[in-house]
Design a protein around this nucleic acid. Structure first.
Lengths: 82, 82
DNA sequence: ATGTGACTAAAAGTCCGTG
DNA sequence: ACACGGACTTTTAGTCACA
């Protein structure tokens, strides 16, 4: 899985786990909703400082956003219909 | 420690461990020599795709570049005079 | 509530050089 | 062999309107 998608799925996983919308998360983290959407879909190429802001807003370490196994498992669930 | 410095020290640690110069590493990874220098000094804000290219050139996972403990230990050694 | 395209301002990244 | 700077091109950050 491409690294941007890995990040995207992990962000989606962590955000959804908190039952918060993209819109609310965008407000919390100080980003635009469309930008967050792009990161989750893996079409953006965020800088390390952006990733840190996102991780901080989620209350996790940046490394958590790069976890390949968790990203895969979550993607499988979603693709499988959840 | 700031995240860009964390990356910088880890890059320096891994590159120096291979006994390769910034110049040669720049050639290997396809980046500019001055740019690599800036990343190691923590003054650059690389994107995730750049970090992946750097990690690949080093033969490690991106997560290795974000390891706080290893970055700290290496920085201590260096600052301490090594 | 989210995906998407188009857009401008800002920053990344290159290429030249210096000490 | 590395730090650092200036001028330059390319990519990202960040915003918005629409579907």
């Amino acid at each position: 899985m491409e690294i941007r998608q890995r990040i995207g799925w992990n962000l989606r996983r962590l955000r959804a786990g908190r039952e918060i919308t993209q819109e609310d998360f965008a407000t919390d983290s100080g980003f635009d909703r469309g930008y967050i959407s792009g990161v989750e879909r893996g079409v953006r190429n965020p800088s390390i400082l952006v990733l840190e802001r996102i991780a901080t807003a989620l209350g996790v370490d940046v490394v958590e956003l790069l976890d390949a196994r968790k990203a895969n498992e979550f993607a499988e669930q979603r693709r499988g219909g959840m």
